[in-house]
Each structure stands twice: as C-alpha cells, then as structure tokens.
C-alpha cells in the first residue's frame, strides 16, 4: 500500500518561545525550526511498515512556507520516497489543512495516512481526526502500536486509563503517540541521496480550498508567572513549611 505522511515545520521543541510585545503572536525570527516530533514518529512508522513489506511507497507532504522543504527533505532522508510541498506563507488552520490533505488523498489514493497526534506549536490535536471525518474513514488516534492483520489495521491507543486496542478497516487515518517508535536519524549518505528524490512544489491556490481562518486571534499573551519560591535546607523544614505555611498536608 501507499502511505501518506503529512509533516509540519514547527519551532524546535528545545526552544523557549517568547511572546511578541505587540501581542500578535510569538517571536519566530531567527529561532531554530524542525519537523514536529510526532511527525518524525509518523515517518518512522511508515518506513517500518515499508521495511516489513506492508507498504510500497511513502509520500511526505507539507503545507507551509518554502522553507518547509527542509522538513520534507528530512523525511526523504529518513526513508520516504517522494515529497510534496503545498506552498503558503499564511497560517493554515487544522480544518483547512485537513481539507487540503483530502485533496491530496484523492489525487494519490493512499490506503493509510499517518499523522502526528498534535503539533507542538498550536497544540490543537485535530488534523488527523478531521481528515478522517472528511474522508469518512475510520481513525486510530494516539497510537502506540500499529499492525496490519487480516486486511485490517490493529491499533493500540494510549488513552487516559491505559491502553485500548481497536481494529479499523482500511483505508484509515492513524495518529502517533510518543511510544509508537523511536525515530531514526538520517545517515549522511541518505541525506545526500534524499537530495535527488522527487519533491513537487505546488501553490496552495492550485487546490481550490477555502483557507480563510475561522478563528480570529485577538491576542497572544504571556502566561501568568509563578512567584519564585524558596529552597529548604532539610526534609524537616520541608514538612514544616508544607504543614504550617502552605497548609497542604
């Protein structure tokens, strides 16, 4: 089968973001950008399915700025076969991303789309579920294990009480959780090879999807800061403070 893996260019998870003083957003100038970590897990899972003989082709797609080619190239270096960039400098909300991905699915006819469960910038946790809804496909979200069995997909999901295993028909949408796998690093030879793999660039306008935002960002502000606390010298002092100062035990 063919697997489609959407990847998003986001601020690196190690960067401490700063809110802009005009409250319009966070400062992205000169900060390190990377592939959303959950999407690396998605790419890795697709590659493992290919290595296991379950999948034949992996297409990495990104909706974002010109520079998102870096993230697609990373996916190609890890082992994806070809890439597609749908170019835009606008902020595209998850609903519009899902609509664009639906168009890509209609063109490419993959049997499986694997996405990260959330992007670590807007923390929305929506796109995979929305894509599944628009396609009327089943969804296996927050996956910690994915196996193809008897023509179906068995997905073990991380849920609040522990783990849940479901079987879903194909075609399907899967979203990744942290424990699904540990993504590989691309080797230098593979990074070189990835430069020659096909990467198609399209304009967002080519798809005829309305991407006008439904949510108007009124403002972006700093979260409330906690007052600096104190260091205690001993366990006895800690217990005393918790009892008499904080009154929590």
């Amino acid at each position: 089968m063919k697997i489609l893996v959407p990847v998003k260019r986001v601020i690196d998870y190690n960067v401490k973001v700063r809110v802009k003083s005009d409250q319009t957003g966070v400062d992205l100038a000169n900060v390190k950008m990377s592939m959303n970590p959950f999407d690396e897990i998605a790419i890795e899972e697709a590659i493992r399915l290919k290595e296991a003989g379950v999948a034949e082709e992996i297409i990495a797609v990104s909706i974002g700025p010109e520079k998102a080619q870096d993230q697609i190239r990373q996916a190609l270096a890890m082992g994806a076969d070809r890439g597609l960039l749908i170019k835009t400098d606008e902020t595209v909300e998850p609903l519009a991303v899902a609509k664009l991905l639906k168009k890509v699915v209609e063109e490419e006819s993959p049997e499986l789309v694997i996405l990260g469960k959330q992007a670590i910038d807007d923390d929305s946790n929506q796109t995979g579920q929305m894509l599944a809804a628009l396609l009327d496909w089943p969804q296996g979200t927050f996956a910690s294990k994915v196996e193809k069995k008897d023509g179906k997909l068995e997905v073990t999901r991380e849920i609040d009480g522990g783990l849940q295993t479901i079987a879903i028909n194909l075609p399907a949408v899967v979203t990744t959780d942290l424990r699904l796998n540990e993504p590989r690093y691309a080797s230098l030879p593979n990074i070189m090879k990835a430069k020659k793999k096909p990467l198609d660039v399209k304009e967002i306008g080519d798809y005829g999807v309305d991407i006008a935002p439904r949510l108007e960002v009124v403002k972006v502000t700093e979260p409330p800061v906690r007052e600096a606390g104190v260091k205690v010298e001993s366990v006895a002092e800690l217990v005393e403070k918790l009892k008499n100062e904080a009154g929590v035990i």
């Binding site: 973001v17 809110v19 108007e216 960002v217 502000t221 700093e222 979260p223």
Partner: peptide, 8 residues
Amino acid sequence: NAMQTVKS
C-alpha cells in the same frame, strides 16, 4: 508558554 485569545 503563550496564551492565545481567539474569537470564533
């Protein structure tokens, strides 16, 4: 690390 106010 940031709080976003959105109007739907």
